[in-house]
Amino acid sequence: MHLSLDGLTVAIDGATLVHSLSLDVPDGSVVGLVGPNGSGKSTALRCVYRALRPTGGTVRVGGDDLASLKPREGARRVAALTQESSSDLDFTVAEVVALGRVPHQRGNGPLTARERELCASAMESMDVAHLAHRGVLTLSGGERQRVLMARALVQEPRVLVLDEPTNHLDVRHQIHLLSLLREVGVTTLVVLHDLNLAAAACDRLGVLSGGRLVAAGPPADVLTPALVREAFGVEATVVPHPLTGAPQLLYRLTHQEGTP
């Protein structure tokens, strides 16, 4: 399902955090939002999963204005993994994952056989099946992140919105999660700080700086030394990955003369 941000603007307390952002996420593609801290990435995502109402512009999902959809229909189309995702209640892992089916249920009936199978498959895919009966409050940050990703998959969304999904994950699970995004074929808008992971996982990148889109396109076209210098304030050499050809950044650590 196609996702589009059309002239999205967000102003809070007199400060404009996102300026007329227009970005397309074609059906089945993975598009990454990258940029320095405070550039408006998470703010833009909050509009897509309706935690914020934009000051101007429109978010469209499958051609429909997201604001016009009823909450249940919106939740059927869009699933989100946010930086704020947490639980103060010690539900079991299996119970948390099953919450992903709420938008599809009527009343408080039990899960169907298909839904139980869907939950089991999602837990297996995120390597948390062995934790099914553990309380989520007993888990590490990385384990909890994988549980929440399994819940999002169980929701069977048409669009995934992920804000730093690799936070707390070890390198194996980072690679596994991003590989999974490529395999499931769900339209995905993802915020990532690691530019090398973003280049490897995403079909296209949008670079935000100061709340404005300063570049958009395939990673090889976007991640140039000049752009990295301008947007992130760091020096980098860009080389192709020897196996995939994806651009990889080699950063130069700079320091003042005489600094140890």
Rank of each mutant, 00 (worst) to 15 (best):
G14M: 05
A15M: 09
A15H: 15
T16P: 01
T16Y: 00
L17V: 14
V18D: 06
V18K: 02
L21I: 11
L21D: 08
L21P: 08
L23F: 13
V25C: 06
V25D: 01
V25I: 11
D27Y: 08
G28Y: 12
G28K: 12
S29V: 07
V30N: 04
V30G: 05
V30L: 09
V31F: 06
G32Q: 05
G32L: 07
L33E: 02
V34S: 09
G35A: 13
P36Q: 10
P36K: 03
N37A: 13
N37V: 14
G38Q: 10
G40I: 10
K41I: 12
S42Q: 00
S42W: 08
L45D: 04
R46P: 07
C47W: 11
V48W: 12
V48S: 07
V48N: 04
Y49N: 04
L52I: 10
L52S: 09
R53C: 00
R53S: 11
P54Q: 02
T58Q: 15
V59N: 02
V59C: 01
V61L: 15
G62P: 03
G63E: 11
G63D: 08
D65A: 13
A67I: 12
S68I: 06
L69N: 13
K70A: 15
P71N: 12
G74L: 14
A75W: 06
R76D: 07
R76N: 02
R76T: 05
A80T: 05
T82M: 09
T82S: 15
S85P: 01
S85W: 01
S86G: 14
S86C: 13
S86N: 14
S86M: 13
D90Q: 05
F91C: 04
V93C: 05
V93S: 00
A94W: 12
A94D: 14
A94P: 08
A94L: 14
E95M: 03
E95P: 03
E95R: 03
V96Q: 00
